[in-house]
């Protein structure tokens, strides 16, 4: 009863109208750089790129958290690992030094992205296999603690900048496309985001997704009918880590900078907030959550340096009085109550 994600999401719109809305949204996102330059606000493109990239990370966390019920408080670790893959490969590309005795350095996005996804997935698999031996509140604490351990690992990694991080002087290259142009890189990020959301949609509707939802609702029942629940949870955790790795790799390119800050535990908290804000266990919710949280942060930060003193209580109020994030808030405003 206490788990809001157990409620089936009430469809706000019919399926046809929903598809139309999604198509409209997509068109809007694609033409956004033109609108931004028309409005004389080119900085919007950079903001939108951040939102699009963070939406990928939030959507991947949503698979574990919203659909699988795995409250991972260490999502920033996989995000940071993905970013470091880009940073390290770029460093070796520039210096020409060998990595693990092989000339692996590269600045090709089509190589670095899969590499980031793979490495993040491997990290998530290792730590997930351990963390999933626990559940409930222990799982929250353990994912947070392991993420902190990976954070310390990168802080201590003096060969790759340690505390100071790594600068990626030039964005990774793509054939036929100039990624150094900010609008172009926005479209590249948008492309990967759309691809990831489409993939998430397929995963959720697949047999795997149904089993995962079953595990969230009652793990004992699923185990009783013969489902190896541990493997399903681990698979969800690993896919979730891979998505975060993709987001991290894109962010490393966007910001042209990688540092342990990307793995900071507050980043994990922000990912969770994005998921909850937008609505856990809904496909597009995390994108909405990312947009609202980043938009709010940007707005508050422009207003006062101490914006967190406002954001913190806002979050508390949101958790206390709206169930199910923004859609809950909309329901509340409509007078529907809970």
């Amino acid at each position: 009863m206490a788990d809001p994600s157990n409620k089936p999401a009430r469809p706000l719109l019919s399926s046809v109208r929903r598809r139309l809305l999604v198509a409209l949204l997509l068109v809007g996102l694609v033409v956004l750089p033109y609108l931004a330059s028309l409005a004389g606000q080119p900085a919007l493109v950079s903001l939108a790129t951040r939102i699009v990239i963070l939406a990928i990370a939030a959507a991947s966390l949503n698979l574990a958290l919203g659909y699988g019920g795995l409250i991972s408080f260490g999502h920033a670790a996989w995000y940071g690992v993905g970013a470091y893959v880009v940073g390290v490969l770029y460093r070796h590309f520039v210096t020409g030094d060998l990595l693990f005795g092989l000339p692996l350095g590269t600045d090709q996005l089509l190589i670095t992205l899969p590499a980031a996804i793979l490495v993040s997935g491997l990290f998530a698999a290792g730590f997930g296999a351990l963390s999933l031996r626990t559940s409930g509140v222990q799982f929250i604490m353990i994912t947070l603690a392991f993420a902190q351990m990976i954070f310390f690992f990168f802080v201590a990694l003096k060969a790759y900048g340690g505390d100071d991080g790594l600068i990626v002087r030039r964005r990774n290259a793509l054939p036929f496309v100039d990624t150094r142009d900010s609008a172009t890189f926005y479209w590249v990020s948008l492309f990967f985001a759309v691809a990831w959301f489409a993939f998430m949609g397929r995963v959720v509707r697949s047999r795997f997704g149904k089993v995962l939802a079953g595990v969230r609702q009652s793990e004992r029942r699923m185990a009783a009918i013969g489902v190896p629940t541990y493997r399903y949870k681990l698979a969800a955790f690993v896919i979730s880590g891979m998505g975060a790795g993709l987001a991290g790799a894109l962010m490393a390119n966007h910001a042209r900078f990688v540092s342990p800050d990307m793995l900071h535990w507050t980043q994990s908290g922000e990912f969770m907030i994005m998921v909850i804000l937008g609505g856990a266990g809904t496909l597009l919710g995390p994108a909405l959550g990312a947009a609202v949280l980043i938009g709010l942060e940007t707005q508050l930060a422009a207003w006062t340096e101490h914006w967190q003193v406002i954001l913190g209580p806002l979050l508390v109020l949101m958790i206390l009085f709206t169930r199910g994030g923004l859609s809950g808030l909309l329901g509340l405003l409509r007078g529907g109550g809970r």
Binding site: M1, A2, D3, P4, L65, I71, F73, G136, V137, I140, T266, G269, M272, I273, I276, A280, H306, W307, Q308, V309, L311, G312, P313, L314, L315, V316, I319, L320
Partner: peptide, 30 residues
């Protein structure tokens, strides 16, 4: 705050108290 969280799941508790941390840290900075 916390009184309203007893009947909630751990996720809500984590997020609400995370909000409190942001608040207290920033207030202390001010």
């Amino acid at each position: 705050v916390v009184r309203r969280l007893y009947a909630r799941d751990h996720l809500d508790q984590v997020l609400a108290t995370f909000g409190l941390i942001l608040f207290f840290n920033q207030l202390t900075t001010i």
